[in-house]
Design a protein around this nucleic acid. Sequence first.
DNA 1: CGTGTAAGGAATTCTGACACG
DNA 2: CGTGTAAGGAATTCTGACACG
Lengths: 106, 106
Amino acid sequence: MPLTDGSFKNKKVISIGTVSELTGLSERQIRYYESRKLIFPERSKTGLRKYSFQDIETLIEIANRLEDGVWTNEIRKELKGRKQLAKDPGFTNQLIKGQLNAQIKM
Amino acid sequence: MPLTDGSFKNKKVISIGTVSELTGLSERQIRYYESRKLIFPERSKTGLRKYSFQDIETLIEIANRLEDGVWTNEIRKELKGRKQLAKDPGFTNQLIKGQLNAQIKM
DNA sequence: CGTGTAAGGAATTCTGACACG
DNA sequence: CGTGTAAGGAATTCTGACACG
């Protein structure tokens, strides 16, 4: 199965510092939007937040809505409208292949 | 301009620990392949390596070739065959928009 | 050649809180 | 409400080196 690019978009692998650079938002803001239930990063085993490119797009959208004077409560409702579709259609499979190979090697 | 998914694939935003988890390779191996000129991560301002999803695919490929008993020197040649095409066709533009908005807001 | 590891330091991220408003 | 900051601690990453082979 060919690797469809859509696989990357929802893979949570970016740390908060990088997200901050990419979006222009402060880490404080990014964490706050999470507490407001606008974004849902995953956590590494040790608790570090991990974001996807999709999250970054959502964050930019959130920043734009806030500029318009919209409250996070309202933004949450707006965001709920757009269902986040199928995640991970293929990429993990490829990764597993790579890891299996690595294992078998041992 | 709509955001083409290809934009994500070449964006260097993943740190080495995450790459290690995703590929099953040790950080030592990943850094070594860089010293062998097989992969070319970018660096954050403070020197931390950042990889793209494309790099991850390449790493899995490298691991597979090594299992076949191929030397890094040879793998480098093989990799050179496949030109890494256009990077960043659009994503950065969108990010800049978000950041500009953020700036203007101030 | 390719990879593991201990070593010391630098950079990152986390949480809870005080602050302003 | 949304965001800044200082505080202390925990987790991550970096480089150069010794080791095996």
